[in-house]
Design a binder for these strands. Structure first.
Lengths: 255, 255
DNA sequence: CTGGTCAGTTGACGGAGGTCAACTGACAGC
DNA sequence: GCTGTCAGTTGACCTCCGTCAACTGACCAG
């Protein structure tokens, strides 16, 4: 996989937040240099994960948050019947595991989509540091809040958008995140399967497949298995919006 | 409206967490008596809201979290096109406003569904207290985490359940929350409109209306405008599960 | 190379739920 | 009382997307 080439060489990383290329993306953002070192000391290295490896499962005791350093993961919940719902795909710089704070055990599962490396933040140690560094505490709250906001977007997408709008929105947001990671945002390398994409959007795989084909016919995308080139970002953006439809979702007093 | 009868007489409340009937439900849960008093001092009274009044709008500067004391609210997001997606209905004891932590401004709107009273927790003061009382800090993180978990349930419901299962799940969870509030959990008084319920579930109002009728025919419910009596809780529970269907959402390795 | 497996694509078909329309009843203003 | 408005219900119709099935191609083991 070439997808890790844009990320730092692992041997450089040596569990050091202050030298981490993702510095601006995760917890340390907005933290001073000395506080960064204190945070640094709480970070424990985590073995890298291979595709399909599980970082934590539903029911696991909560003892750490995790930062994606390279690669990507999916997180999902399952009901009693075994139905799965993918909640998010996680790219480098993102922190996961917040769902476990409520009950001290995880209520979702996180699984690597490709070879990935992970920073572990043992929560007990993290709490010590946050209690001494208020800025870090605030930053941590901000990060959870971002997750809440992101889920609002997911809900809006699932509840109010048509299938094609959903897929367009999904690709658009992936491109935006690539850009923040300084990657080429016009050439996406999808580490997740079509099944995963379909599940994430509340659709079935055949629908997603047809939509990829349709958007290729429209000249918006060039699709080649895992590789998606965005030929017309402008068109992709316009496909995200529902044109005219769904008066039921509009507010009388909107505008 | 009789629905406020089960809630404390407002005149008793006098912005005091230690005497609040909702004590076990919101922030103070698990906090000692003396720390409770410190929290108490940060709470500011908030005028009550009438039906349709807005607590905060999208774009408002963030300066406080809010606790529902009596009544109920809905929170929702809107996209550029004006489409609305309801995120949650909020009952007494619930804390709202966490979405604003990320960017220091609200990215959703909260609106009263009936006459409601609200506790305001000015965030600046709250931060002072949490920095001095680590237990409160932990409790606050737990509360946000609960919101994350709740949204996972909402996503699972929208993505993987059929319309009837969704409505059953919605009513079931409302009944559960009534129970925690010591209300009669078999007689729900729906403060939200059919439109709101439909929007929350990603459906249209006609579908919700038909489902209420169907569930009444089945003998599960007795529906009379805003009042819903659950005649057969066992049947309602069984309607929440998808029977057999949707192999696409099942995991190979499940079980 | 051959055969098996699995991800993904494409077509044909059907149904759950959306759309449109008509109607009812509660409630407020006059 | 009458009238207008708006929430909610019900019916008729249609469409988007799910289901089922067949097929293709990548990849791996032998």
């Amino acid at each position: 996989m070439e997808s890790t080439a844009t990320v730092l060489d692992l041997s450089q990383l040596r569990r050091s937040c202050s030298s981490c290329a993702l510095q601006e993306l995760c917890l340390p953002a907005g933290i001073g240099a000395d506080d960064l070192n204190r945070l640094d000391a709480t970070v424990k290295d985590k073995r890298s994960l291979d595709r399909g490896n599980v970082l934590y499962r539903d029911g696991d005791r909560f003892d750490a948050l995790y930062v994606v350093r390279s690669g990507s993961l999916k997180s999902f919940v399952q009901n009693e019947a075994g139905d799965m719902q993918i909640l998010a795909f996680h790219l480098p710089g993102e922190i996961i595991g917040f769902d476990a704070l409520a009950s001290n055990q995880h209520v979702s599962q996180a699984e690597a989509l490709e070879r990935s490396s992970i920073c572990e933040l043992p929560y007990a140690k993290l709490q010590q540091v946050t209690s001494e560094v208020p800025a870090l505490h605030r930053q941590l709250m901000r990060v959870i809040s971002r997750e809440v906001v992101e889920e609002h977007r997911h809900l809006m997408m699932m509840g109010r958008q048509q299938a094609q709008e959903q897929l367009a929105t999904f690709l658009k947001s992936l491109a935006d995140r690539y850009q923040r990671l300084q990657r080429d945002s016009t050439t996406l390398t999808l580490s997740m399967s079509r099944y995963d994409i379909a599940n994430y959007l509340g659709l079935v795989v055949e629908t997603v497949s047809r939509l990829f084909s349709r958007m290729e016919e429209m000249g918006v995308l060039e699709v080649n298995r895992k590789s998606v080139r965005i030929l017309r970002p402008d068109l992709l953006t316009s496909l995200c919006r529902s044109e005219g439809g769904n008066a039921a979702a509009k507010r009388k007093d909107a505008g």
